Computed example of a mutant assay.
Amino acid sequence: MRRRKLILGGAGLLGAFGFTLGVGAWRSGDLQRLVEDRGTGGNRANLSGMSWQLINDRGDPVDPEDWLGQASMVFFGFTWCPDVCPTTLMDIADWLEGLGPDADRIRVFMITVDPERDSPEILAEYLSNFDPRIRGLTGSPDDIARAAQAFGVKYERVPREDGDYTMNHTSGVFVFQPSGELASTIDFHEGRRFAVPKIRRAIG
């Protein structure tokens, strides 16, 4: 909980440096392209066309085939994210609450873009501050790069003046049907009254 407060407390500093605007620019273009790929049958439109393997926050291997048969939500983030990621996680928790019993019919994952710091144990500790149905995924830098490419997600390491670094990345949430086909995307800060119906349609 202390870490979550520290992360949320850095939101004002993040805005001062303009990182939120940078993420927003990436977000809009990438999510729109992913939606357009639905009509072409591209790999980014269907989980069954992806090829990657990651490790969840319990140390178990996970690949796209594991998600087939049940609706899924996934977004990319990292545990030291000061604004967009904790906000998205709180939004997702709110959406799950709005779904009621149907919330148990969808899997939810955060894939880290910072595998050097986000081990399975760190992800588990961080996500314990949010809805317990949200699981974390990590892997080697090459594994993360392969997964991000499959989803059409961009990310980059951004050095800070104190010698540390942060990550700039595509935000937004991808929603997949049980068949693995992309159902919709949910933009950053999209209201519950719009997000929940999108998720219900994916669940079926």
Results as ranks from 00 to 15, higher is better:
Asp63Lys: 04
Val35Leu: 15
Gln53Ser: 14
Gly22Glu: 11
Ile111Phe: 09
Asp102His: 09
Asp63Phe: 04
Leu8Lys: 01
Leu21Asp: 12
Gly24Tyr: 09
Ile122Glu: 15
Ser72Pro: 00
Ser128Arg: 11
Leu182Glu: 09
Ser179Ala: 11
Gly41Arg: 03
Lys154Val: 05
Gly18Tyr: 05
Val108Asp: 08
Pro132Thr: 04
Gly18Phe: 08
Asp164Phe: 06
Val74Glu: 08
Ile186Phe: 10
Arg133Asn: 13
Phe188His: 14
Cys85Asp: 12
Gln177His: 15
Ser140Gln: 07
Phe17Trp: 05
Asn168His: 04
Asn56Trp: 14
Gly180Leu: 13
Thr112Leu: 14
Cys81Met: 07
Asp104Pro: 06
Gly77Asn: 04
Gly10Gln: 00
Asp57Ala: 12
Val196Arg: 00
Gly10Val: 01
Thr40His: 10
Pro178Ile: 04
Asp57Leu: 10
Arg44Pro: 07
Thr166Ile: 12
Val173Cys: 05
Glu65Ala: 05
Ala124Leu: 15
Pro101Ile: 14
Thr20Val: 12
Asp94Glu: 14
Asp143Glu: 15
Arg146Val: 11
Cys85Leu: 10
Ile7Gly: 00
Ala147Thr: 10
Asp57Ile: 14
Gly98Lys: 04
Gly39Ser: 13
Glu65Leu: 03
Glu97His: 14
Asp162Thr: 01
Asp37Phe: 01
Ile111Ala: 10
Arg27Trp: 00
